[in-house]
Design a protein around this nucleic acid. Structure first.
Length: 293
DNA sequence: TGCCCCCTGCAG
DNA sequence: CTGCAGGGGGCA
């Protein structure tokens, strides 16, 4: 799915348009994408105003005036695309009209009609979801949110926090450790591979065997790679688009992800694809070696 | 701490 | 046709 940089890009787009708008109607094209009862939808969703658009890890959170919050997880192929009504345009933005005008399409699962436009939740593989939960105590009560690790891009996120969380997962591979959302929130397969390459760590290295120096490089790399990606609108491997229907361009700058067979930008060796943490994993075998303590 | 699974679609 | 895909929950 969309990882932190993609979800943040979506959030930034929605934040421009949604706050202050009321929800007029909801259409479910695939019931499991919105596992919320009709009673709760009528009572706490219809007529409620969107107060803001937040993000925590890979989750979009929209507090509503009803005291409930919309939670949206895009998983692997989710999209949240906003189409303004006629005369309520994007202003200075550059919407991808060719995509937006075709909505809803065969991947549209939930349609949220708002005062000035329509929000489409598209999800080809149907893994994503839209949920509705009480805003009060949300971060403690929600099973997913309460377990999430720290936000890696927050100013107060320290190397000590990262190191201690990795220590808890000392027996897994370093890649599995950084993909674990309780260690750090928002890292997915693309940014795991890119960060591990930047830090010159082999993904199958046991987390507990990674030296403090290398861990520090990894901590920095995670932050740098994801910040860069946000500035480029995220990664569009296949499905991902932002709230205006536009693709991100980070993958043009990726060094190893989906680059198997290409030369390593560092040493010129051939980038290989292996399996780590159950995921396709991209490495430069010359730059990234498994070390043992 | 790995697997299977939730799905659809695309490349090989 | 088989295998694989930005995720993560549930199950040994």
């Amino acid at each position: 799915m969309p990882e932190l940089p993609e979800v943040e890009t979506v959030r930034l787009g929605l934040q421009e348009f949604l706050p202050g708008q009321a929800i007029k109607s909801i259409t479910k094209d695939w019931p499991k994408s919105l596992p919320v009862s009709e009673e709760l939808i009528s009572a706490s969703l219809i007529g409620a105003k969107v107060e803001s658009v937040q993000r925590r890890g890979k989750l979009i959170i929209m507090p509503l005036s009803s005291g409930y919050s919309l939670l949206i997880h895009l998983k692997m192929t989710g999209q949240l695309v906003y189409r303004p009504n006629k005369g309520k345009g994007f202003g200075g933005g550059h919407p991808n009209d060719s995509l937006i005008d075709k909505l809803p399409d065969r991947s549209t699962r939930v349609i949220i009609e708002l005062t000035n436009g329509t929000l489409f939740f598209n999800d080809q593989r149907k893994f994503g979801w839209v949920k509705l939960e009480k805003s009060e105590g949300l971060y403690e009560n929600n099973a997913f949110l309460s377990k999430l690790g720290p936000e890696p891009l927050e100013d107060n996120y320290t190397f000590e926090q990262f190191k201690n969380a990795i220590k808890r997962r000392a027996n897994t591979s370093i890649k599995a450790a950084i993909l674990d959302q309780t260690v750090v929130a928002g890292v997915g397969n693309i940014y795991a591979d890119e960060s591990l390459f930047d830090a010159r760590i082999h993904p199958l290295t046991k987390a507990g065997d990674v030296s403090t120096i290398k861990l520090k490089r990894l901590y920095n790399a995670i932050r740098e790679v994801m910040s860069l990606s946000i500035s480029l609108g995220g990664s569009s491997d296949r499905n991902y688009v932002d709230a205006k229907g536009n693709r991100g361009s980070y993958l043009k700058f990726a060094k190893v992800f989906r680059k198997e067979g290409s030369p390593c930008p560092e040493c010129g060796g051939e980038i290989k694809k292996i399996r780590a943490a159950g995921r396709g994993t991209h490495i430069c075998p010359r730059c990234q070696k498994i070390v043992k303590k």
